[in-house]
């Protein structure tokens, strides 16, 4: 976890340095705001990882001498198949088409999207599709 944190924190620090130079040199707002937010976007997860990296034991994937056996156990659940991403994608498709062809397309769009969100959540609760 430590290297992951270091990567994000150093990227964030670099952006911080860059935006400081840029702002005092140019006084340009848009670019400074965007770079500043880029810095935050690195610091936020970076400091979260850093916080945890100090509190947890190195994971097997952080240990250069780990054996494959040390990773035994369930990594996570990986659903095999699911129709809900497709349903949600179609919902998003209709929502975007509503921006172009008329507001009524929001009905199928949001309908499909909600159906997919409910269906996908229920599927996740059951521990994945079978």
């Amino acid at each position: 976890m430590r290297n992951e944190a270091k990567l994000l924190l150093s990227l964030g620090s670099f952006f911080g340095l860059m935006v400081a130079v840029y702002w005092f040199w140019s006084h340009e707002n848009a670019g400074s705001v965007m770079m500043f937010c880029g810095m935050l976007l690195c610091f936020l997860p970076g400091s979260y990882y850093y916080f945890w990296s100090r509190r947890m034991k190195p994971r097997a994937e952080d240990d250069p001498n780990a054996t494959q056996a040390s990773g035994a156990g369930i990594v996570g659940t990986f659903p095999g198949t699911s129709i809900w991403p497709f349903t949600l994608g179609m919902g998003a498709f209709f929502v975007v088409l509503a921006l172009v062809f008329g507001i009524w397309l929001l009905i199928p769009g949001l309908g499909l999207a909600f159906w997919a969100i409910i269906g996908g959540t229920a599927e996740g609760r059951r521990g994945g599709p079978h």
Binding site: E61, D62, N65, Q68, S70
Partner: peptide, 11 residues
């Protein structure tokens, strides 16, 4: 960040 095999360090 989360699914590397044991021993697969960042470097």
């Amino acid at each position: 960040f989360y699914l590397r095999a044991p021993g697969m360090t960042m470097f």
